[in-house]
Amino acid sequence: MMFVDVLLTVLTVAFALLTVFSKKTVISAFALLMTLVCIGGIYYQLGSVFLSAIQVLVNAGAVAILFVFVMMLIDLEKYPNNTERSKIKLIITVLTSLVSLGVLALIINNNIDTITVVNLSDSSMKALFDRLFTQYYIPFELATVLLLAAVVAVVVIANNNKQHPGKE
């Protein structure tokens, strides 16, 4: 096991824990940004350079910053302790997560010996895009339609309170 693998894993775990357990939502958003950057590093480490670049550009660069941008519009300081829950809810939540993690870890542990590492000789961008523009061109075009629909939906949803004027 390489040193870089361990370093990336530790960083990802630390930032993910900070994302969930931070009291302030802004810190959560920046921790999520760093988590996504670390996952991009893991993609690079696994040999998929294109996905690593897209992860840093789109997920970390655009999505996480969009969260921070929306937080500027919303008054989140009204309730500073936003993770306070009753004890029974906390116990149920932690139990659910631990059981899921246990089941997943058991499945991984039982099958980890059968997993081999194949050398992806053609994992370059050319092979990826050959497949994207020949075999997967209908999903690709549908994805563009989905993005356009999302743009229209965002404009409509964010503007729909013209006929229902809220509290002034």
Binding site: M1, D5, V6, T9, T12, V13, A16, L17, T19, V20, T25, A29, T35, I42, L46, F67, V70, M71, I74, L76, Y79, N82, T83, E84, R85, K89, L90, I92, T93, V94, T96, S97, L98, S100, L101, L104, A105, I108, I112, I115
Partner: peptide, 24 residues
């Protein structure tokens, strides 16, 4: 180690989704 990391990230996100109070 990355297999365990992905399982951990999924379950941590599940915990936060149930546990957190604000929608963001």
């Amino acid at each position: 180690i990355y297999y365990y990391l992905s399982a951990f990230l999924f379950c941590l996100g599940l915990l936060g989704t149930i546990y957190k109070k604000d929608l963001i």
